[in-house]
Every structure is written in C-alpha cells, then in structure tokens.
Simulated assay, not measured.
Amino acid sequence: MRVVAAEDSYLVREGLRLLLATQDDLDLVACVATADELRAAVAEHGPDVVLTDVRMPPGERDEGIRVAEELAGTHPGLGVVLLSQYLEPDWAVRLFDGGAAGRAYLLKERVGDLAQLRHALESVVAGGTVLDPLVVEALVRGRAAQRASPLTRLTPRERQVLGLVAEGLSNAAIAARLVLSERAVEKHITSVLAKLDLDPGDGTVHRRVRAVLLYLSEAAG
C-alpha cells in the first residue's frame, strides 16, 4: 500500500514516518508539510491512499479538506484519511458530502495507535468509510439531545449498532462485538434505517452512510 502523508508538524511527521516504517506492507512514498506539496506528491507518486491533517500551510484553516475535495474529482479511486485535532462536524460533513466511499475521519490522537491507523488506511483503500469512535460517540450524544431528532425513535441496542456501523464495522464484525447473529444485526440495521426515514430507493450502503451523515449535519447546525 503506497501512502502519501501531509502534516505541518515536524514531530508528528517524523512520528508517522517511523511508525509506518515498521510495516513491511506500507510504503510511505512521500511525507510533506503543505497543501501544495501534497498535491504535487499525489501527482508524482500516484499513491493508494492519502493521510492528511485538516489544517496546513499556507492558511492553517481547512486545506486538507480542500485537497480531499479536489482529489474526489481528479483521483476518484484514491483513499483519503483525514486527521483532525478537534471534533469539527462541519469538516466531517464536507469530507463525506461528495461521497463517503474511500474516506475516513479520525482524531489526530489516533496517529499513535497503529491498529486503528491501519484499519482506516486499509478500509479507505478498499472503498470503505471510517469515523473515529469518539467522534461517533460525541455526535450521537449531541443528536440524542435534540427532542425532535429521529434518533429518539431508536432503541438503545439500535443506537449501539448504528455507532458500530459508523465506525466502519461490517455486519459480521458487529455481530461478533455484540455477541449477536448476523441476522439479528441485519434486522437492527433495517429498523434503524426505517426509523430515520431514509429513502429505501437510495440502496442499503448509501442509506447506512446517510444515517451517520444525519448525525454530522444536525450537530453542525
């Protein structure tokens, strides 16, 4: 797996370099500090996945998301893992707005957790979607606090299942985590999607992603 990383902090950049160097099947082909350098590295190396901070020079605002938005058009098969130091619902909404496939949103504290980082990298390369568990937890809490929220229609078990879906777990993985049958997990997910009033015509995969984006968009509002 060929990786391009973008992070303006020298210490974090070197930490990523050392961490990924321990994995024989991960090839860090470039590690850069700015949005312009990230664009150039993608063009030069043609990586499988980009691992990027949200805020980078020159503006230190949302450069990582801007590049991710550009790459969705210029490199549609390229996976992107976005790292954020803080929970910013607006950024998560923007990251997934153009399509959730091959996108991950993680808090930067996950950088030191190799298993979590590998999971995100592998998932986006395979076309999957990953949301940081802490992001999901915070969004679910905020979403549940809204009295008019469709989330209030969900049972505690359905909320738990939806949280695991948002983390990027498959039905089989959710079943193993909760000690349920896959059929039971499927029934919970079907119930969640129905209670959230998501259009059945959108397809199951898209509806699963939309269920998570519903949390993000309402939290951002």
Rank of each mutant, 00 (worst) to 15 (best):
T34W: 01
R39I: 14
A21E: 11
V192S: 01
V192C: 10
S181C: 01
A43H: 00
V130Q: 13
H206M: 05
D132Q: 05
Y105A: 01
L28D: 12
L162T: 10
R39H: 05
C31V: 11
L117C: 15
A30Y: 08
R159E: 15
V111S: 06
R141H: 08
V12G: 08
L19P: 03
L51R: 14
V49A: 03
G59D: 12
G221S: 14
R66Q: 11
E69G: 05
L51P: 04
V29A: 08
L198M: 04
E60Q: 06
E88R: 04
R118L: 15
A166G: 15
V111F: 11
T155S: 15
E182V: 10
A41M: 00
R2I: 12
T204L: 13
D202Y: 12
R61C: 03
T152N: 15
Y86S: 13
A220L: 07
L95A: 03
L139I: 02
D48K: 09
L18I: 11
C31A: 14
L213G: 05
H188R: 02
T22Y: 05
N171H: 04
C31G: 12
A172L: 06
R208Y: 02
A219V: 10
L114R: 02
R210K: 15
L193D: 01
R2K: 01
R17T: 13
L114E: 02
A120V: 02
L71D: 03
D8L: 04
G102F: 00
G79H: 08
F96I: 01
V42L: 03
L117S: 06
V32N: 05
V185N: 00
A194L: 11
A219S: 15
G112N: 09
V205E: 13
N171D: 12
A220E: 11
G127V: 11
L107W: 00
G15V: 02
E88C: 09
L131W: 12
L193Y: 03
D197M: 04
D48W: 08
G102E: 09
C31R: 00
A175Q: 02
L162I: 03
R13I: 08
E218S: 14
E158T: 12
L26V: 14
A6S: 04
V125D: 05
A43W: 01
R208W: 06
D62M: 12
E70G: 08
P76Y: 06
G203R: 07
A68V: 13
V124A: 11
A166N: 08
V130P: 10
R103S: 11
Q85K: 12
V93P: 06
V81M: 07
D48S: 11
S217K: 15
V209Y: 14
V81K: 09
A5G: 07
R94F: 02
A173Q: 14
E122G: 15
G112E: 07
A175H: 07
L164W: 05
T74L: 01
V125N: 01
A166P: 05
A41K: 05
G79Q: 11
E182K: 04
V165E: 10
V165C: 08
M56T: 03
A72N: 03
